[in-house]
Design a protein around this nucleic acid. Sequence first.
DNA 1: ACAGTTTCCCGTAAATGC
DNA 2: TGCATTTACGGGAAACTG
Lengths: 421, 421
Amino acid sequence: EKQPCMPTHPQKPLIIKTGVQFTTKVRLLVKLPEVDYQLKVKTTFDKDLPPGRVSRQFFILTNNTKVMDIEDYSNGCLSVDFRHLQLKEKKYINGTKGSEGLLSVTEELHSLSFEASFTVQGLTIDLETCSLPLVVISNVSQLPGGWASVMWYNLLTDEPRNLAFFGNPPRASWSQLSEVLSWQFSTFAGRGLNKEQLTMLGEKLLGQHVSCSDYHVSWSKFSKNIPGKPFSFWMWLDSILELIKKHLLPVWNENYIMGFVSKETERSLLKDREPGTFLLRFSESHLGGITFTWVENSNGEVKFNSVEPYTKNRLSALPFADIIRDYKVISDGVVPENPLKFLYPDIPKDDAFGRLYNSQPSKVHPYISSTLIPISELRSNTSTTLPSCRSPEPPMTPGEFNMLNEHLCFDIETMSSPYSE
Amino acid sequence: EKQPCMPTHPQKPLIIKTGVQFTTKVRLLVKLPEVDYQLKVKTTFDKDLPPGRVSRQFFILTNNTKVMDIEDYSNGCLSVDFRHLQLKEKKYINGTKGSEGLLSVTEELHSLSFEASFTVQGLTIDLETCSLPLVVISNVSQLPGGWASVMWYNLLTDEPRNLAFFGNPPRASWSQLSEVLSWQFSTFAGRGLNKEQLTMLGEKLLGQHVSCSDYHVSWSKFSKNIPGKPFSFWMWLDSILELIKKHLLPVWNENYIMGFVSKETERSLLKDREPGTFLLRFSESHLGGITFTWVENSNGEVKFNSVEPYTKNRLSALPFADIIRDYKVISDGVVPENPLKFLYPDIPKDDAFGRLYNSQPSKVHPYISSTLIPISELRSNTSTTLPSCRSPEPPMTPGEFNMLNEHLCFDIETMSSPYSE
DNA sequence: ACAGTTTCCCGTAAATGC
DNA sequence: TGCATTTACGGGAAACTG
């Protein structure tokens, strides 16, 4: 009879961070006869959860009851918006720290329950409903893991409340999964993944089995660390999504980032193109990095170069389009030259990126304006630059206030509060 | 009977941010006879504060009583450390929102009281003491303003608890103030200010009166916005201090930053030097910026150029020493050249900064490493690029830190609030 | 409308727990 | 000890509130 809407965390529903406000809405779908009194709804976190089922317990720190009201728009349904709800972990539940030590926090599912009761014609009616499974995190660094769980659950089951789902999570067929992955990109970055990009992702995940589109991917393969690497497939992919959202949106939406290409494919694509042709792809070895690879012709021999991937730190100092515009290679002290001429297959660089270049900062008079440009220095013998020695650090002695300390002996002393810097 | 010792937390004592933990310590300076029971100390915020005296009221959210204990080291004094104390504002004290609407939050002074009582030989003895005046802030953005208050108070009064101090704050003599300002730099950045730097600051604050070292600076001149600018003298100076702490420490400590120089002085210093001689100074028109000015000789005519000031954002993309090493000017498309040759007066650039250069990032094999370099493009027609108007100068102040001495006699102590970095 | 002030909360760093 | 998880809080920005 009622229908819960999810915690409306704008972007990533079904994930709640402790100590951070969330909201939820409950709507009564039937019209009640003669409701002339207040219909109270109470929200409870993990109501009736079998003990030992979860390893962490939480409660709603804030006010958890509210009176239903007629919805503004149209239908006249009764509904209630809970706002400013906040979750806190119960401490000291000693001993009963759940049996599921095998699961990580982001695999532990919870739920929000809603209850109301009213009396009509002497008959008391109890209503109760609950949310889809929720993941509770304590730091945004756990958001990607939590979102992986939410996706997996909702992709693979229709059960409304199987909190033990990750005790034995099913596999996903590649055709289902690839659709979800593309959907992530179209939802959060405005453009989905094309067939070639998905193929590369499939091969990364499954080896050459991708051809069989009914191949299945296990939860571990998707969400647990790749052997030999400190991150999982999904963490890697999500780091790219974040990079796009923060620094590459226009370039991504123009479809200028091939992004997911194996090195072999990359070379076979570039080798017959005009020298100076380049393409953009994401780093496979590091989280959230993008690089460009260009082809050049030295002495009749085809050569490929890739720049060290740019990560969010570098990109926040200099927008990516400007990096492409200004990138220079200096060989043996000769005049720097930009090796990037054509975006694959053959679009003149400025035709593609011209609209995305930042205008130069306007000049503040007495000063000469200055900008940063990305530059690589090549030596003809070895590939890179000088060895250099780092120097020691300067001591930094903040004078302390100990001036008055010791000798003052008498009685109290003070306090330190964290202010400093 | 009790006596306070200074904020043991080295950094910014006497400032407390709501919602952030702080600590304080109280020490009993007399030995009590036969103390065979527990001596409890209770901490109260703004105890007995006349109503209406302050516009905001706070309370200690956490546990505020603790038992005294024998101090670990030596003397066997009784003492107690309060940790994890936290302040929260009392809400809804309707109506009584203090009379002092004239004062800003950082001018509103508070205090922490400590009480204990014990019985000896049938006689009950009450002990009480309290802290130096405290400033309560709610966001780190208020820290500079709070610190200005703490400095001014402790510089200009020996009263232990004049919470109405900012109702009518006294002026500071330039000789006092300049000492405090220099002390800020030596405490927080490891090197104080020299005579020339202080002179420039004095002129900024007082015009040409600095010669009279008994000239006095008002609190407003020090801490209120400079007419026509959105920041005060102290905010400007503090933004420079922060910039040094975060990005310029080694360069500052090597004394390579002249920093505070008027444009006139700058030119007169540079005009007779070798072309390519440069000096480093802070922006007077923007918060937290540093620039270099170099002299060059074009067609027998002396010319000065200054680069657009670097702020924390740019500096966190590229360390300042590397900027100096790599800075290039490109004129009319010719080969870029670094115009910086000698640090004033005549130190070859690499002799001065060589040890401070960062080593190049080591190369990750398949990639060509890349770095950012700062570059300015000049057109030959005018000396710089677009014309634009620059604004006037920011002011400055000197000061000194003898603040906390004297008054320590009786009662209390201090606190430092945890802000750190 | 607005300025001063507080709240909110991400993201990094440090602390804690297992 | 190392890893997983939580806490702490600076810093930018939004929300508040007179």
